[in-house]
């Protein structure tokens, strides 16, 4: 027999699992990261403190240290979501659903292989966010970006991509969490609204975050003109990206949400 020293619980653990299968975690639903209030505060303070220290040290170093400081700040922004995910000790189905949505987001480009510059990843992340909520939406976005980095090559842009797609997913998920967007079966009007929302999120949030990365990594000196030049140069790319997102949401929105709902119904799969 394998070592069974730690945590042999017998029937209790089975019963706990059964409870988990039958009823979603009621306790967690209220809190935004699935954590207790004190832990959330502790995490918030840690993030702020770390940011202040980083900025102070960066200022001390001077020169081009904002390059490093900005990346560190981005990592601080992402970290709480990951830490919360770890502390939650997610169940098998939650991990699987997350992995499936991320893999779909990474692979989705292949389905549109015949259309140049068509990037549907942001749209898939947003759909996952609508179905699963803000915190899972952020995770799907960030993990998809990280995974696509691991597959196609990591670079200095990877943390920025994680933040950009995470934020896009998180915001869309927030709309669903507060009830503005239903979890599935969007009416035609709502579908158009969500797709337009997706377009705007990409053009105004996801794209600009990626452009900020370009600004910090490529530009020698950061001046208002340099910034303006980078953001303007990025605009056409972002518009195309936004249009692809819009088209994907319009086309795959309801089918994908419907399928998630179908699986949830057929197998009692729960919302993480």
């Amino acid at each position: 027999m394998p070592s069974m020293t730690n945590g042999e619980k017998g029937p209790d653990s089975i019963r706990q699992q059964e409870e988990w299968r039958q009823a979603p975690d009621r306790k967690r639903r209220g809190s935004s990261l699935g954590l207790s209030r004190s832990r959330r505060w502790a995490m918030g303070i840690a993030v702020v403190a770390a940011s202040i220290v980083t900025i102070a040290v960066g200022a001390q170093l001077g020169g081009r240290s904002y390059y490093l400081v900005s990346v560190l700040l981005v990592i601080y922004a992402i970290a709480p979501f990951f830490i919360a995910f770890e502390l939650r000790r997610p169940q098998a189905r939650e991990v699987v659903v997350l992995a499936v949505m991320c893999a779909l987001a990474v692979v989705s480009r292949v389905a549109f292989i015949w259309i140049p510059h068509f990037k549907p990843m942001a749209a898939i992340v947003m759909l996952a966010a609508i179905a699963l909520g803000a915190r899972s939406g952020f995770l799907v976005g960030a993990v998809s970006a990280l995974a696509s980095g691991l597959i196609f090559g990591l670079g200095p842009w990877t943390p920025w991509q994680m933040l950009a797609f995470g934020a896009g997913g998180g915001l869309m998920g927030l709309l669903a969490d507060v009830g503005v967007v239903p979890r599935s079966k969007l009416s035609p009007k709502m579908l158009v609204a969500v797709s337009t929302g997706g377009f705007l999120l990409v053009v105004l949030l996801v794209g600009p975050i990626l452009d900020t990365c370009t600004l910090f990594t490529m530009m020698g000196t950061i001046t208002p003109t340099a910034a303006a030049a980078v953001y303007l140069a990025g605009l056409p790319v972002n518009l195309i990206h936004g249009t692809a997102t819009l088209a994907t949401l319009l086309l795959a929105g309801n089918p994908l949400l419907g399928k998630l709902a179908r699986v949830q119904m057929k197998y009692g799969l729960l919302r993480p």
């Binding site: 027999m1 069974m4 945590g7 042999e8 029937p11 653990s13 089975i14 009692g268």
Partner: peptide, 26 residues
């Protein structure tokens, strides 16, 4: 999920009383 009647014994014990760890391994 569903309604069950009757029982399954594993090694002489009802399956529900066999711990999750033991079931996973054995």
């Amino acid at each position: 999920h569903g309604s069950t009647d009757g029982r399954v014994l594993f090694d002489g014990r009802p399956l529900g009383e066999v711990g999750a760890r033991e079931q996973a391994a054995r």
